[in-house]
Design a protein around this nucleic acid. Structure first.
Length: 583
DNA sequence: TGCGGCTATTG
DNA sequence: CACAATAGCCGCAG
């Protein structure tokens, strides 16, 4: 178990082979600036080096052995920042979130979880003062405490890493990976869980790469779009203030009282009351509905659009997130706290659609854009095993056969299906909903059971094995509602999470398959948008990448879906700007 | 200064 | 205006 040191004289690949590492085997990695790196195998063997070129060692091992790199989590970014694009990973944080739901995935919690310790009773760092005896040097090399928890000192930002400590840390990571794998195997009713662990881990690699690479964006086009709404870039703060009050004045001149604050919803209501309009709230869709009835309404609608650009998607946004290299960068997360979709900051997931013309491929490159068609109802058909709904997926537009089956028009069928997945029980869709119950009983029962579980706070698991927590933890927005509507909300949440979560798992399988196979064509994924992929590819490889993306969908479906009864479809196009895609 | 409410945008 | 997310500004409590 003693860590062995390796050096340039001793080839680390040979040592790993001798230690029993097979191609694709678990290889835990820990590294710290100035302290070198350490790796550990699942059998406990650990090797460490002194200060090394992290990239060179990883690259060598990756080429020769293609291991499954076991990472606690944050090392993923270090790896990618060091220029490494490894193929396989086992991300302890991602697997922890899969097994336990929620968002927390720090090493202390992960360790406690796989050892059955209370995650809400984690030890905390005791402040060092005159009355605290200094920790003995020997004890500080062992992170495992007598009570079974990890020493919180090891998790602090200024922890002093040594080769010996890195070795131990890697050993622990390897142990956790083995324990997590065992837990996944125990999920007998979720046979896909181990596979999901691997694809979710690969998605973490993809997220790190997306964070580092960024989205190609043409600054001049973006600035022109901003200028359309709020005018040229202000040169001074005073000029910015002036532009802002000029925008306000354009609305207020239609009112007799110019003192109202347009940014205060209550005052906007008063403003509207002044022209004889009484609204329950001042949301855009309510204002749009009465557009043209008074010049103030129209001016207010325009003001709202401009204000949105000025505050969120204006020059400040570009300055903060668009690099000198023309890449828009945000932080990517592989799975959010709820159903496990990917998230991104810097507006990458909620950029107004009119900015898509600014998202442009670089010279000599094209985008391959692909989006999944009607993914959620197709996912529902697959995970529920509803043969009738699966039959409808044979159509490019599944709402057409569903409409025929229900004896309603397509629009009604669509609203009903979406309403069923979101948990809507009232309104126009409610009548058609009863038609769904009789036409697709298996799918509807799948949703209802998730709903009931959510209502009573019983956790559920998606098809791929992700725990959806519906109990007390994790959700905060259910504060002061009464218990009945809270239960109903939790029911809708669980019902939808089973579909949205499974769709997210499937999407990630597709995305990581594309990631892995597009590399050989020098193409890289630059954006993931829940059901849409944007791949940046060399101009001459555009068609080949488009074909590859379509092929990967077939493979992803074969790998992820319980059987081949459900058809998944994607619209794939080769374009120069994101806006070139069909509506 | 932190938090809930309101608003807008995306899938 | 159901399900999910990020993100800004405002008013209010501490």
């Amino acid at each position: 178990m003693d860590p062995r040191s390796t050096s340039a004289d001793h080839d680390i690949v040979d040592e790993l082979r001798r230690a029993g590492l097979e191609r694709g085997g678990f290889l835990a990695l820990s590294a710290a600036t100035g302290a070198g790196l350490a790796v550990a195998l699942r059998n406990g063997t650990s090797l460490s080096t002194g200060v090394v070129d992290l990239g060179a060692v990883i690259s060598h091992v990756e080429t020769e052995l293609r291991p499954r790199w076991v990472l606690w989590g944050p090392e993923t970014m270090s790896l990618v920042r060091a220029g490494q694009r490894v193929g396989r990973s086992w991300n302890l944080g991602a697997v922890h979130r899969l097994l336990n739901g929620g968002w927390h995935a720090d090493p202390a919690r992960i360790w406690a979880s796989v050892h059955g310790l209370d995650g809400d009773a984690l030890p905390v760092v005791t402040p060092v003062d005159l009355f605290t005896a200094p920790v003995e040097a020997g004890a500080a090399d062992e992170p495992l405490r007598a009570d079974g928890y990890l020493d919180p000192e090891w998790l602090t930002a200024d922890f002093e890493w040594t080769p010996k400590r890195l070795s131990r840390w890697a050993q622990l990571a390897a142990q956790v990976a083995v324990l997590q794998e065992a837990r996944l195997v125990e999920l007998h009713d979720r046979p896909r869980a181990r596979s999901t662990a691997r694809s979710e881990s690969a998605a973490e690699l993809l997220c790190a790469e997306l964070s580092v690479d960024g989205l190609p964006m043409d600054r001049r086009t973006a600035e022109a779009i901003i200028a359309e709404f709020i005018g040229p870039r202000p040169r001074t703060d005073a000029e910015a203030v002036e532009q802002r009050s000029a925008r306000d004045a354009e609305v207020l001149r239609h009112s007799s009282n110019a003192g109202y604050d347009l940014r205060n919803p209550a005052q906007v209501k008063s403003l509207l009351r002044g022209i004889g309009v009484e609204l329950p709230d001042t949301r855009a869709w309510r204002l749009e509905a009465i557009r043209g009835t008074h010049p103030l309404i129209d001016a207010l609608c325009e003001w709202r659009k401009a204000e949105r650009i000025a505050t969120t998607f204006g020059y400040g946004w570009l300055d903060e997130h668009l690099g000198a290299d023309g890449r828009l960068r945000g932080e990517w997360s592989g799975s959010d706290g709820a159903a496990g979709r990917m998230t991104a900051s810097a507006g990458l997931h909620n950029m107004p659609a009119n900015f898509r013309s600014a998202v442009a491929a670089e010279a000599g490159h094209v985008f391959v854009r692909a989006d999944l068609g009607q993914i959620e109802p197709r996912i529902l058909a697959a995970v529920s095993g509803d043969a009738a709904l699966a039959a409808a997926t044979a159509d490019d537009d599944l709402y057409l056969p569903v409409a025929t089956q229900l004896g309603v028009d397509r629009a009604t069928a669509k609203v009903a299906v979406l309403g069923a997945m979101y948990g809507q029980t009232t309104g126009h869709g409610a009548v058609a909903l009863r038609g769904l119950e009789s036409a697709y009983p298996v799918a509807m029962r799948y949703l209802t059971e998730a709903d009931l579980a959510g209502q009573v706070g019983r956790d559920v698991r998606t098809h791929g094995g992700r725990l959806i927590r519906t109990g007390s933890a994790n959700r905060s927005e259910l504060g002061d509602r009464d218990s009945r509507s809270r239960a109903a909300a939790q029911g809708r949440y669980a019902r939808n999470a089973m579909v949205q979560g499974a769709a997210a798992e499937f999407f990630k399988v597709w995305a990581v398959t594309v990631r892995s196979r597009a590399a050989a064509l020098d193409a890289r994924i630059v954006l993931c948008l829940h059901d849409e992929l944007l791949v940046h590819a060399p101009l001459e490889r555009g068609d080949a990448v488009a074909q590859l993306v379509a092929d990967c969908l077939v493979d992803a479906a074969r790998q992820w879906a319980p059987n081949e009864s459900v058809r998944f479809v994607a619209d794939v196009s080769v374009i120069e700007r994101w806006s070139d895609a069909k509506p």
